[in-house]
Design a protein around this nucleic acid. Structure first.
Lengths: 214, 214
DNA sequence: TGCAAAGTTGCAGTGTGTGTAAAGTTGCAC
DNA sequence: GTGCAACTTTACACACACTGCAACTTTGCA
């Protein structure tokens, strides 16, 4: 199968123009995700083989695994999580507001908003994940993988916080951060992708608080 | 390899004496878990094949998969979650205290305490899971698998609760329940398995509350 | 003792994921 | 443009997880 890649010229100003190599890489990555979505939507996760996906995308099976660790990751569009953004740095150094909870919410919001995969593709991934529990699990696992980095981030933050905050373990704060991200993600999805990440994370926090303060 | 099973005579009064068949089944199950623990502790998860485990346990590879869905499940001792215990029933019908939070805590505690696998084995599983992120992931996946049942449980409970509780979605309560279970599980492990599940779940709730009420 | 139900086993097969080395592309300096 | 270094893709071989199936063995029970 002969497939042409759509190479989009990056016209943003702050990002230096990407070379052909990098653009091809991204295009191929998205082509693989899209091919996976198409096939899985039609036949279901287990009935689709990596080989079939590769044929659809016009790429060798070996290449597939250069892009994704597992088949499931291709559906989810998972890639190593860029935990070195401006938002994470600001959080670690005590910002943006100085209140732990508010800043956690801001961080969750930035995670969901600046996802390294387009909004539409996220939506399609969610749709499929709802039908295939295994995908959901994989998503959780993927988040869990980054918990070490997250904990380190939080460790930095807690050391410059108030005495109150410092009494918390970075472990539990990290878990909470993951939980908030996850729950917000789901709530956003349940709302059909409408609204902003900010709104949803606030709603989740409110619910949680109401459960915990009986 | 010729391996003899240790068949423990069940002497409890309320449980009718188990037949030979059932006792053998349990013994084999535990033998498989133990063999897996031994080998994985020594060589690491990825270096241990199912075949090796079966040789150690004196069982055919095919039999292994009659007991566990995946290799990872054998480490974790996972088995279909018995969500029809007395504790779950009590929770669904508004008990034991009538306060949602307190009853959630009791439920978490019962999950961890009445695990269908012995305390020691749980401890060993936790030890191994700490070193192998994939196991953790699988554990999360396993919990996620039961979320549907959990949601149904919570749905029943919420319908007989106060107006306050009824405003919550069973979704978020279910997620919270899973989160509490998970976080407590980890905290218990971090404490080296000392203390009771009750104590740890309370501590987790306290921490969470302090994060959320800035 | 004998029969039905439950459990175990070997075997063949599918599919995921990895290591490796050769072949093809791109970036860049001259 | 030419040429070389760095990076990517690809084919191939392989290990291993896991499944379906059809004997075969063991247990429960009359």
């Amino acid at each position: 199968m002969c497939v042409k890649l759509h190479l989009v010229q990056n016209s943003s100003v702050d990002e230096p123009a990407l070379g052909l190599r990098e653009r091809k890489k991204r295009a191929r990555r998205e082509a693989l995700i899209d091919a996976t979505h198409r096939l899985v939507a039609e036949h279901g996760l287990d009935a689709v083989t990596v080989e079939a996906i590769c044929e659809e995308a016009g790429v060798s099976a070996r290449t597939f695994f250069n892009y994704f660790e597992t088949k499931d990751d291709a559906v989810l569009g998972h890639t190593p999580w860029p935990l070195d953004s401006a938002a994470t740095e600001e959080f670690a150094t005590g910002g943006p507001t100085g209140h732990l909870l508010a800043d956690l919410q801001a961080l969750v919001s930035s995670f969901l908003t600046d996802a390294p995969i387009g909004r539409q593709r996220v939506a399609r991934a969610l749709e499929l994940a709802a039908k295939e529990p295994r995908l959901f699990a994989r998503h959780l696992a993927w988040m869990e993988q980054h918990k070490g980095q997250l904990s380190a981030l939080i460790e930095r933050r807690l050391q410059m916080g108030t005495a109150d905050d410092a009494a918390l373990s970075s472990e539990i704060v990290g878990s909470t951060l993951l939980f908030l991200t996850h729950a917000t993600f789901m709530r956003w999805d349940a709302a059909g992708g409408t609204g902003t990440a900010d709104e949803h994370v606030s709603a989740v926090v409110a619910d949680l608080r109401s459960i915990l303060t009986d």
